[in-house]
Design a protein around this nucleic acid. Structure first.
Length: 572
DNA sequence: GCCGTTTTCGGCCCGACTGTTTTCAGTCG
């Protein structure tokens, strides 16, 4: 059984136990185990077969037995029984804001309601009013919550949320009501998908800040308004939380509200072991505050070097900070050039010359052009004749600039049988070849993996484009064995793309870290279809950071001479 | 259900807000 599936089942058991009203620490043990399995670099089946599961901290006798049963038989009786004992609809109810396991249990036990739709009717009939702990307001909120989840999906792309957050922050800054305001939460950690926007302000008069906060013109609904905290929903459905603290508390609160929850939990455990209490208001030795002017000093007081927000996912960053091995993360300024753009020759909207000028004006020293190949008829892919025409134009432009170089590339479709889209005599003339899947997504896992591996091991392939093929919030990636593909990329010296398009952000950062450990090299590419698209590269940088990448791991941090040589050597 | 320099039981991270109460439970982050 697949790791992903095991993780899902363990999490679901945790949830079901909560709904059953079991010991909360018991369900936490399952959540914890799910996370441990999720972060395993090694193949779970191997671990189980070698009976090493029980050696992992957090997996005891009972979980060892259950996970082993799952991995070996693909089933778990305990889970089946548990699931059968609880109506499915109760899990859906958890999506309603303000409803947690306890209240759902009450609703189920007292009113025998088993689905969101039934719950909605019950609210309209005022049947919740008589339940213990419920009242008119609660019933209204549940109704509103049901409307809300009907109307909006609960997640947003990083790029969308980030631009909303920046606008909100600018509004607050302009109002000049707080001494400091920062965007925190998953946005600060640059997660590819976020649930809401977290904003943190420092002020001695929090009410003024909150009053200003809720008057933001784009606010559609005020969900909560307290003395230090407020939540609103914006017109486009995204929720925004504001916390106001005192100025001296700002670094502690910034760390706290940046998260992740898992990182914070691990940090508090560490602090506790050192006799330090840690919360959003400070770190304390007994009652006494340990003064910190910034996050660096907080980490320092816990015996750690600074951990960049992008790494705070409890994926080994605390251990690395303890050892002083936090990587010097790649940054926008490290990039010397751009690869993977589309021009008007295929489905781009700017001319080659316009893109070259734009790239040059942004301070880069080279541009790798990669229009679609001939099979991509939907994207106006280039045939040989059009290709020769483009090469001629590139040659001419390369004569004009002495400080800038255009590389001839292609984004070649990976055909269903794994072959590339041109004959070898054409392929060998490119400076670089990006191989990407754009069709026949529904092959089974083995077929798809073999297809991609065949393309990847093609002599002329330089870069594997958007490796999982996912479209965030819209389409899951193809069914492939990514570990295997990463291993092949590593052993064949092939580059893996970090596609910076905000809908893709592909390769996923969780795999990037894994691939880096296998010595894979990356290219951070905008996949731009117009001049504005060049700026997407900054999202790719965020994801590269989350994958622990340094400049040396990224091919387009090389200067013109080095990358020319690198690309030439790859073809040998 | 897990864990152990307090080791086989008794803890397990912490605080704000809301809505319900009349001192607190539940939810959320």
């Amino acid at each position: 059984m697949e790791k992903k599936e095991i993780v899902k089942i363990l999490n679901e058991i945790g949830l079901l136990l909560e709904l059953k009203g079991e010991n909360p620490f018991k369900s936490r043990a399952y959540y914890n185990a799910a996370r441990i399995i999720e972060l395993l670099d090694e193949d779970i089946e191997t671990i189980v077969k070698e009976d090493r599961l029980k050696d992992i901290k957090g997996i005891g006798e009972a979980l060892n037995k259950k996970i082993t049963e799952l991995v070996l038989t693909g089933k778990l009786k305990y889970y089946e029984d548990l699931k059968a004992s609880i109506p499915e609809g109760l899990i859906d109810m958890l999506k309603i804001p303000g409803l947690g396991p306890k209240r759902i249990r009450t609703i189920y036990e007292q009113l025998n309601i088993t689905s969101v739709r039934e719950l909605e009717y019950a609210c309209l009939e005022n049947r919740l009013l008589d339940l213990p702990g419920f009242g008119k307001k609660m019933q209204n909120n549940i109704l509103k919550g049901i409307q809300f989840i009907k109307q909006f999906s609960s997640h947003f792309l990083y790029s969308e949320a980030y631009s909303q957050a920046v606008d909100y922050k600018e509004y607050l800054d302009a109002a000049n009501v707080a001494k400091k305001t920062e965007i925190a939460g998953s946005l600060r950690r640059k997660k590819e998908i976020v649930k809401d926007i977290d904003i943190l302000s420092a002020s001695n008069s929090p009410n003024t800040v909150i009053d200003t906060f809720i008057k933001y013109p784009k606010v559609k609904e005020i969900v909560e308004k307290g003395d230090t905290k407020s939540s609103v929903i914006l017109e486009d459905g995204i929720g925004v939380d504001l916390r106001v603290i005192k100025e001296y508390q700002f670094p502690y609160a910034l760390h706290h509200f940046t998260g992740s929850k898992e990182h914070n939990t691990a940090m508090r455990h560490r602090a506790k072991k050192m006799g330090i209490k840690m919360n959003e208001y400070g770190i304390f030795k007994g009652e006494e505050l340990i003064k910190c002017l910034n996050e660096e000093e907080i980490f320092f007081n816990l015996g750690l070097s600074f951990i960049p927000p992008e790494l705070r996912e409890n994926m080994g960053e605390i251990e690395a900070a303890e050892k002083g091995t936090i990587p010097n993360l790649v940054d926008n300024s490290d990039l010397k050039g751009i690869l993977h753009v589309h021009t008007r020759y295929s489905d781009g909207t700017n001319s080659l010359k316009e893109l070259v000028e734009a790239t040059r004006n942004l301070g880069y020293s080279y541009l790798g052009v990669s229009d679609h190949s001939k099979s991509a008829y939907y994207a106006n892919g280039l045939n040989e004749e059009q290709l020769f025409e483009q090469w001629k134009e590139i040659d001419n432009l390369n004569q004009i600039y002495n400080d800038f170089r255009i590389f001839k590339g292609i984004e070649s479709d990976i055909l269903p049988d794994g072959s590339l889209d041109f004959e070898d005599e054409i392929l060998e003339k490119f400076d670089f070849v990006i191989a990407s899947v754009h069709s026949n997504f529904n092959l089974n896992k083995q077929e798809m993996t073999e297809r991609i591996i065949k393309a990847l091991t093609n002599k002329y392939t330089t870069i594997l484009g958007h490796p999982t093929g996912r479209l965030l919030l819209a389409r899951n990636g193809y069914d492939i064995d990514m570990e295997k593909i990463i291993e092949i990329a590593s052993s064949h010296g092939k580059i893996i793309e970090i596609n910076s398009n905000p809908y893709r952000l592909d390769l996923d950062w969780r795999y990037i870290k894994y691939a880096k450990e296998k010595n894979v090299i990356f290219a951070i590419c905008p996949d731009a279809h117009n001049i504005e698209g060049l700026s997407h590269i900054t999202y790719g940088i965020g994801i590269a950071k989350k994958g622990w990448l340094e400049a040396k791991d990224v091919i387009n941090t090389l200067d013109i001479e080095s990358i020319s040589k690198f690309l030439k050597d790859l073809k040998q």
